[in-house]
Design a protein around this nucleic acid. Structure first.
Lengths: 222, 222
DNA sequence: CGATCTGTTGACGGCAGTCAAGTCAAGTGG
DNA sequence: CCACTTGACTTGACTGCCGTCAACAGATCG
């Protein structure tokens, strides 16, 4: 159900492929700058992309995370006032801008898909607003872990309501987690340690996590 | 430039009018509930609409404010997991759902406008994410006042860069401001008093505000 | 081996939340 | 008309969560 190209016919796909090119980025590399007026459009093939906003004094907030099959860039929106960085090694499937915008005008299905995707992003953003504004540090960290656990667990496993467990990897540094949750990285460390001590999560190494009971994790997420 | 109908031809407008009806709400009245599957669509004619999310234990976060010419409701998005309440007396211009969705499919201009509007909402939501996650109480309150000041000042006045002042009214209770900024209403009171003491704003009554120097207010907003 | 980056843990302090009292304005009803 | 209630707002005192500062452990790399 995800991804842009599912909304297209075979013929349309063929035309789309012609204005498509692959591009890879190293961890930490800048993909798109805020005052970049070249609003190109791309799908994430692999890796994780951070969307961040920055205040003049350096305070920073991650306003979105893009995983494989998510899309990057706002067609028609001329000023895209945030940065996109590669959080991991990232591979993008890019569309040449002018050709892509012409196709949007021609293929109603593509525009429709774009609208649905934007609505999804809006819902996601608003979900995080309540996390940022109203949850405690512990709940914030648990919320992020819950999101990653459910995101990286195949949906088939979610369907059958067995007592669920999940294994997942965090591709973000502690500092980036903090910038996502509106916390400091020390607080993130402490809350992760806290959740570990309570048995809500288990860790092997710094980045590998396990949630033995997702229901329990969900309780801690508020 | 705002509003939905600017994207339409006269003929299309005529057809749209046929599936249109007016509706009014009293302050505090529920307009749309989260598990309401009737995703109807409407434009705000007058008044202010709050979009709120609620946690199970009652904690509450306003995730969006709609002013006249803004639109309410997500076409095609079946589960709209938040509430819409009237913050003031509200008048809506509603579209009958099925007819409206059929028109969206037919008129490319309408879908395009809808996409632009959703992108705007997404940008607005993400702007508030950095406010919620990274700003102090004082900056949060100043940010809200700045938004209201610029929203209610005609743009022509913004164009000419004179030392700007603005008069505006806050239609929200202190409690609602708090729910918008992720604070308690006591903190909101104190920060307003603080800004008043510093001369950044002036008040007459509880709801009437003046910002003698918007540039200065903007500094306090971070 | 030192340098650097990432992560962990501890001690302390401040900003904002909690609890509480009180003002003011607008009803409400006897 | 006045006593009473209610809701919105304000202000003060105290507390606690989380930020700040700091020391340290591991890992990676030249």
């Amino acid at each position: 159900m995800r991804g842009l190209c599912n909304a297209l016919t075979d013929e349309e796909l063929l035309r789309l492929k012609k204005i498509t090119y692959r591009k890879t980025y190293k961890p930490g590399e800048l993909i798109l700058s805020g005052d970049d007026d070249a609003t190109f459009y791309a799908g994430v093939v692999s890796g994780v992309v951070k969307l961040t906003k920055i205040l003049v004094d350096g305070r920073q907030q991650i306003v979105g995370l893009l995983f494989p099959s998510d899309s990057l860039g706002h067609a028609f929106s001329k000023n895209n006032p945030y940065f996109a960085d590669a959080a991991t090694e990232v591979e993008l499937c890019c569309f040449e801008r002018v050709g892509f915008e012409r196709m949007i005008d021609e293929f109603s299905g593509l525009k429709h898909r774009l609208l649905e995707q934007t609505l999804d992003e809006l819902n996601t953003a608003r979900d995080w607003m309540i996390t940022l504004g109203r949850k405690t540090a512990e709940e914030k960290v648990a919320s992020l872990l819950l999101m990653l656990a459910t995101r990286s667990t195949p949906s088939s496993q979610v369907e059958m309501r067995a007592p669920q467990s999940a294994y997942f990897e965090i591709h973000l540094k502690r500092h980036e987690i903090a910038d996502f949750l509106g916390l400091t990285y020390e607080t993130v460390c402490r809350q992760i340690a806290h959740l570990k001590k309570k048995g809500v999560i288990k860790m092997s190494g710094k980045r590998q996590f396990a949630a033995p009971d997702i229901e329990k994790l969900s309780m801690y997420a508020g």
